[in-house]
Protein backbone atom coordinates (compact mmCIF):
# COMPACT_ATOMS: atom_id res chain seq x y z
CA UNK A 1 0.00 0.00 0.00
CA UNK A 2 2.83 2.41 0.78
CA UNK A 3 4.74 1.79 -2.46
CA UNK A 4 2.88 4.41 -4.49
CA UNK A 5 3.87 7.47 -2.42
CA UNK A 6 7.51 6.38 -2.50
CA UNK A 7 7.37 5.92 -6.27
CA UNK A 8 5.82 9.35 -6.60
CA UNK A 9 8.52 10.79 -4.37
CA UNK A 10 11.22 9.17 -6.47
CA UNK A 11 9.52 10.37 -9.63
CA UNK A 12 9.40 13.87 -8.24
CA UNK A 13 13.07 13.77 -7.27
CA UNK A 14 14.06 12.64 -10.73
CA UNK A 15 11.87 15.26 -12.35
CA UNK A 16 13.42 17.94 -10.17
CA UNK A 17 16.88 16.70 -11.12
CA UNK A 18 15.90 16.81 -14.76
CA UNK A 19 14.53 20.34 -14.60
CA UNK A 20 17.54 21.54 -12.60
CA UNK A 21 19.88 20.02 -15.12
CA UNK A 22 17.99 21.57 -17.98
CA UNK A 23 17.96 24.94 -16.24
CA UNK A 24 21.66 24.72 -15.43
CA UNK A 25 22.62 23.84 -18.96
CA UNK A 26 19.95 25.60 -20.96
CA UNK A 27 20.77 28.76 -22.83
CA UNK A 28 24.46 28.53 -22.03
CA UNK A 29 25.28 26.12 -24.79
CA UNK A 30 23.17 26.67 -27.88
CA UNK A 31 22.59 23.84 -30.26
CA UNK A 32 24.98 23.60 -33.16
CA UNK A 33 23.54 22.55 -36.45
CA UNK A 34 25.40 19.54 -37.81
CA UNK A 35 27.07 20.33 -41.06
CA UNK A 36 26.41 16.93 -42.55
CA UNK A 37 24.02 14.03 -42.20
CA UNK A 38 24.66 11.28 -39.72
CA UNK A 39 24.37 7.63 -40.74
CA UNK A 40 20.76 6.70 -40.09
CA UNK A 41 18.12 4.13 -40.92
CA UNK A 42 15.15 5.02 -38.72
CA UNK A 43 15.62 8.81 -38.71
CA UNK A 44 13.10 10.36 -41.13
CA UNK A 45 15.50 11.91 -43.59
CA UNK A 46 15.76 10.69 -47.17
CA UNK A 47 19.12 9.49 -48.47
CA UNK A 48 20.48 11.68 -51.24
CA UNK A 49 18.99 10.71 -54.61
CA UNK A 50 20.63 7.51 -55.81
CA UNK A 51 22.36 6.92 -52.47
CA UNK A 52 22.01 3.54 -50.75
CA UNK A 53 22.10 3.02 -47.01
CA UNK A 54 21.86 -0.21 -45.07
CA UNK A 55 22.03 -1.74 -41.62
CA UNK A 56 22.42 -5.18 -40.14
CA UNK A 57 21.40 -6.13 -36.64
CA UNK A 58 19.15 -8.13 -34.38
CA UNK A 59 15.62 -7.65 -33.10
CA UNK A 60 14.70 -9.39 -29.87
CA UNK A 61 11.00 -10.04 -29.37
CA UNK A 62 9.72 -11.03 -25.96
CA UNK A 63 7.12 -13.73 -26.32
CA UNK A 64 3.63 -12.96 -24.99
CA UNK A 65 2.50 -15.25 -22.17
CA UNK A 66 -0.87 -15.78 -23.83
CA UNK A 67 0.91 -17.71 -26.60
CA UNK A 68 4.04 -19.20 -25.08
CA UNK A 69 2.59 -19.57 -21.59
CA UNK A 70 5.33 -20.29 -19.04
CA UNK A 71 8.07 -20.01 -21.65
CA UNK A 72 8.96 -16.31 -21.65
CA UNK A 73 12.01 -15.62 -23.77
CA UNK A 74 13.40 -12.96 -26.05
CA UNK A 75 13.52 -14.43 -29.52
CA UNK A 76 16.20 -12.94 -31.80
CA UNK A 77 15.70 -12.27 -35.49
CA UNK A 78 18.32 -11.10 -37.97
CA UNK A 79 17.31 -7.67 -39.23
CA UNK A 80 18.65 -6.21 -42.51
CA UNK A 81 17.56 -2.81 -43.78
CA UNK A 82 18.25 -1.36 -47.20
CA UNK A 83 17.16 2.08 -48.37
CA UNK A 84 17.63 4.09 -51.55
CA UNK A 85 17.03 7.77 -52.18
CA UNK A 86 14.73 8.45 -55.12
CA UNK A 87 14.55 12.20 -54.84
CA UNK A 88 15.31 14.85 -52.28
CA UNK A 89 12.42 13.72 -50.11
CA UNK A 90 11.32 10.35 -51.41
CA UNK A 91 13.08 7.05 -50.71
CA UNK A 92 12.57 3.32 -51.03
CA UNK A 93 12.85 1.05 -48.04
CA UNK A 94 13.53 -2.67 -47.95
CA UNK A 95 13.77 -4.88 -44.91
CA UNK A 96 14.46 -8.54 -44.31
CA UNK A 97 13.91 -10.13 -40.93
CA UNK A 98 14.66 -13.79 -40.59
CA UNK A 99 14.81 -16.57 -38.04
CA UNK A 100 15.66 -19.02 -40.82
CA UNK A 101 12.56 -21.19 -40.32
CA UNK A 102 10.48 -18.05 -40.81
CA UNK A 103 11.27 -14.84 -42.62
CA UNK A 104 9.70 -11.52 -43.42
CA UNK A 105 10.51 -9.34 -46.42
CA UNK A 106 9.22 -5.77 -46.57
CA UNK A 107 9.23 -3.15 -49.29
CA UNK A 108 8.07 0.39 -48.80
CA UNK A 109 8.07 3.96 -49.91
CA UNK A 110 8.69 6.91 -47.61
CA UNK A 111 8.43 10.66 -48.01
CA UNK A 112 10.47 12.70 -45.55
CA UNK A 113 10.78 16.39 -44.95
CA UNK A 114 12.48 18.60 -42.36
CA UNK A 115 10.08 20.63 -40.23
CA UNK A 116 12.89 22.65 -38.65
CA UNK A 117 16.65 22.36 -38.26
CA UNK A 118 16.06 19.71 -35.61
CA UNK A 119 12.70 18.19 -36.31
CA UNK A 120 12.03 15.84 -39.22
CA UNK A 121 8.95 13.99 -40.40
CA UNK A 122 8.23 11.12 -42.71
CA UNK A 123 5.16 9.26 -43.84
CA UNK A 124 5.28 5.97 -45.64
CA UNK A 125 3.83 2.60 -46.31
CA UNK A 126 5.51 -0.80 -46.15
CA UNK A 127 4.15 -3.99 -47.63
CA UNK A 128 5.58 -7.16 -46.07
CA UNK A 129 5.34 -10.78 -46.98
CA UNK A 130 6.20 -13.47 -44.47
CA UNK A 131 6.75 -17.17 -44.82
CA UNK A 132 7.35 -19.98 -42.35
CA UNK A 133 7.80 -23.72 -42.69
CA UNK A 134 8.32 -26.40 -40.08
CA UNK A 135 8.94 -30.04 -40.85
CA UNK A 136 9.80 -31.95 -37.68
CA UNK A 137 9.16 -35.67 -37.30
CA UNK A 138 6.10 -36.40 -35.15
CA UNK A 139 5.64 -32.70 -34.41
CA UNK A 140 5.18 -30.44 -37.44
CA UNK A 141 4.33 -30.69 -41.08
CA UNK A 142 3.23 -27.09 -41.41
CA UNK A 143 3.71 -24.06 -43.58
CA UNK A 144 2.17 -20.63 -43.60
CA UNK A 145 2.57 -17.34 -45.39
CA UNK A 146 0.88 -14.01 -45.48
CA UNK A 147 0.87 -10.36 -46.42
CA UNK A 148 0.75 -7.43 -44.04
CA UNK A 149 0.77 -3.70 -44.60
CA UNK A 150 2.33 -1.08 -42.33
CA UNK A 151 1.38 2.55 -42.94
CA UNK A 152 3.81 4.56 -40.84
CA UNK A 153 4.61 8.01 -39.60
CA UNK A 154 7.98 8.97 -38.10
CA UNK A 155 9.07 12.00 -36.18
CA UNK A 156 12.80 12.54 -35.84
CA UNK A 157 14.50 14.91 -33.48
CA UNK A 158 18.21 15.82 -33.61
CA UNK A 159 19.06 15.87 -29.94
CA UNK A 160 22.57 17.05 -30.75
CA UNK A 161 25.33 16.58 -33.25
CA UNK A 162 25.71 12.85 -32.84
CA UNK A 163 22.43 11.71 -31.40
CA UNK A 164 19.11 11.37 -33.21
CA UNK A 165 15.82 10.21 -31.78
CA UNK A 166 13.08 8.75 -33.92
CA UNK A 167 9.56 8.04 -32.75
CA UNK A 168 7.65 5.94 -35.23
CA UNK A 169 4.02 4.94 -35.20
CA UNK A 170 2.79 2.14 -37.42
CA UNK A 171 -0.56 0.68 -38.21
CA UNK A 172 -0.58 -3.06 -38.84
CA UNK A 173 -3.03 -4.37 -41.40
CA UNK A 174 -3.57 -8.01 -42.28
CA UNK A 175 -4.15 -8.58 -45.97
CA UNK A 176 -3.73 -12.28 -46.57
CA UNK A 177 -3.02 -15.40 -44.52
CA UNK A 178 -2.68 -18.99 -45.65
CA UNK A 179 -1.83 -21.86 -43.33
CA UNK A 180 -1.29 -25.47 -44.30
CA UNK A 181 -0.89 -28.64 -42.24
CA UNK A 182 -0.28 -31.77 -44.24
CA UNK A 183 -2.83 -31.63 -47.05
CA UNK A 184 -5.26 -29.28 -45.31
CA UNK A 185 -5.16 -25.52 -45.75
CA UNK A 186 -7.08 -22.52 -44.53
CA UNK A 187 -7.07 -19.05 -46.07
CA UNK A 188 -8.06 -15.68 -44.66
CA UNK A 189 -8.01 -12.91 -47.24
CA UNK A 190 -10.05 -10.29 -45.45
CA UNK A 191 -8.33 -6.93 -45.01
CA UNK A 192 -8.46 -6.12 -41.33
CA UNK A 193 -6.73 -4.00 -38.75
CA UNK A 194 -4.34 -6.20 -36.83
CA UNK A 195 -2.89 -3.66 -34.41
CA UNK A 196 -0.35 -0.90 -34.11
CA UNK A 197 3.21 -0.34 -33.02
CA UNK A 198 5.26 2.49 -31.57
CA UNK A 199 9.07 2.62 -31.76
CA UNK A 200 11.60 4.80 -29.99
CA UNK A 201 15.01 4.57 -31.65
CA UNK A 202 18.27 6.40 -30.93
CA UNK A 203 20.91 6.57 -33.66
CA UNK A 204 24.45 7.55 -32.82
CA UNK A 205 28.13 6.60 -33.23
CA UNK A 206 29.18 3.61 -31.14
CA UNK A 207 32.90 3.02 -31.69
CA UNK A 208 35.25 4.46 -34.27
CA UNK A 209 33.11 5.43 -37.23
CA UNK A 210 30.55 2.75 -36.56
CA UNK A 211 27.03 4.08 -36.01
CA UNK A 212 24.23 2.07 -34.49
CA UNK A 213 20.47 2.10 -34.12
CA UNK A 214 19.31 1.23 -30.61
CA UNK A 215 15.65 1.21 -29.80
CA UNK A 216 12.50 -0.23 -28.40
CA UNK A 217 9.41 -1.16 -30.35
CA UNK A 218 6.13 -2.05 -28.74
CA UNK A 219 3.59 -3.72 -30.94
CA UNK A 220 0.04 -4.36 -29.83
CA UNK A 221 -1.29 -6.75 -32.39
CA UNK A 222 -3.61 -9.62 -32.92
CA UNK A 223 -1.21 -11.64 -35.03
CA UNK A 224 2.57 -11.64 -35.18
CA UNK A 225 4.24 -13.47 -38.05
CA UNK A 226 7.06 -14.73 -35.83
CA UNK A 227 4.58 -16.83 -33.88
CA UNK A 228 2.55 -18.26 -36.76
CA UNK A 229 3.38 -21.82 -35.66
CA UNK A 230 1.69 -21.24 -32.30
CA UNK A 231 -1.64 -20.79 -34.09
CA UNK A 232 -2.87 -17.85 -32.06
CA UNK A 233 -6.64 -18.06 -31.79
CA UNK A 234 -7.18 -14.93 -29.72
CA UNK A 235 -9.02 -12.00 -31.19
CA UNK A 236 -7.23 -9.64 -28.84
CA UNK A 237 -4.23 -7.40 -29.22
CA UNK A 238 -1.26 -8.98 -27.49
CA UNK A 239 1.82 -7.05 -26.39
CA UNK A 240 5.05 -7.74 -28.27
CA UNK A 241 7.95 -5.71 -26.84
CA UNK A 242 11.03 -5.64 -29.07
CA UNK A 243 14.60 -4.45 -28.55
CA UNK A 244 16.25 -3.20 -31.74
CA UNK A 245 20.01 -3.10 -32.21
CA UNK A 246 21.59 -2.62 -35.60
CA UNK A 247 24.90 -1.59 -37.09
CA UNK A 248 24.49 1.04 -39.79
CA UNK A 249 26.74 -0.19 -42.56
Amino acid sequence: MHSKPIRLWLSGALLAASVSLAAAQGGRQPFQQPDERQPEIYFPQAPRPGEWRKSLGLIFTTTPPELTEEVRVSVPAVDFNLQKGLSKKLFLTGRLQTQFVQSNLGLGLRWATPLSDRLFLSVGDDMTGWFGALLIKDVFNSQAYGLQNFPNLSLGYRLNRDLQLTVRGEGILDMYYRSKVGTLAVVDNKWQVNGFAVSFVLEQPFYGNQHVSLGFRAAYSNFNWQFWSLYDTFDRNLFYPQVIFGFIL
Partner: peptide
Protein backbone atom coordinates in the same frame (compact mmCIF):
# COMPACT_ATOMS: atom_id res chain seq x y z
CA UNK B 1 -0.86 -37.63 -33.21
CA UNK B 2 -0.40 -33.88 -33.20
CA UNK B 3 -2.75 -31.97 -35.47
CA UNK B 4 0.18 -29.97 -36.87
CA UNK B 5 1.18 -33.10 -38.79
CA UNK B 6 -1.98 -32.76 -40.86
CA UNK B 7 -4.69 -35.35 -41.52
CA UNK B 8 -2.17 -38.23 -42.10
CA UNK B 9 -4.92 -40.07 -43.93
Amino acid sequence: PRWTLGPQT
